[in-house]
Amino acid sequence: MLQFLIRRLIGAVVIMFLIGAFTFFLFYAVPQDFAALSCGKNCSPENIAVIRENLGLDQPITTQFWNFMVGIVAGRDFAVGHCPAPCLGVSFKTGDFVWESIMDRFPLTLSLTIGGLIIFLLFGLGTGMLAAWKRGTVVDKIASGASIVLSSFQIYLLGPIVLGILVYQTGWMENPKYVPFTEDPAAWFIGLLIPWVVMATIFTAQYTRMARSTMIEQLQEEHVRTARAKGMSRKYVFFRYAWRGSLIPIVTIIGMDLSSLLAGGVVTEFTFDLAGLGRLAVESSVTKDLPLTMGAMLFGAFFILILNILVDIAYAFIDPRVRLS
């Protein structure tokens, strides 16, 4: 296991480097002048030259890339001060350290993800298992039907509808707002409730369908039928054999969803006017803020790689065959 971990971590570092290099050079493949984009109203050639120098864009691209990579490991000095490692540079637009900007946005993204995850796992997996347990009954039909309808919804459609009813029409709730949990847990909870519920509704539907189908599939496996034939109770077989067997695909999907949510739930953040990592990534890309885009990309990639490794570890715990191989 240790060897496996070391191998995967080294691979992750290499992939991170490649993603960084790819993003960096891809930006420069587009023929545009970042200094001109930052120069506001006085776009004289003299002013553009001043900005180019201020941003370090007057240096060769390879030097800029080298400085960027060195900064991640050793930190860098800028006009606005020393940027400690892991230094992802300074935003062209705001002049803030990229790492600080990311850390500032991350708590909201983490809160959105964790809250939503708890809701959609509880309800999604629960409803899916119930539907599989009650296969063919009215309960199954309602659960399956509802999940098909709800999974065809999108956050950008459902979000404004929920806001329209709960906030704009009835005034029962305030607009979503992020308050740090450490500041006021109640305000944190209330402020994110609508985004959680909307996000979870979509995901719940998807997880319901997935849990139901994988459970049904598992229940038809030969080892499950053998267990039943040996006289084990339906409940015991359901949870001890079928549930465990269905976890592999579910954990895989959870890992993928979790990593993309942690990298930034763009649609959720824009729908509810929240400032998380997704918004940061999109806005930095739109404004051609190279350091911020690089930072957001690398941060997202970090979670995707880490969660992939965790999913692989989880496989080993769930399925003894993985451990043995």
Partner: peptide, 17 residues
């Protein structure tokens, strides 16, 4: 972080904050 569409919706509704 509130886009023009949301600003207008919120102010038309005139609820809470």
């Amino acid at each position: 972080t509130i886009d023009q569409t949301s600003q207008t919706k919120r102010l038309i509704a005139d609820q809470g904050e």
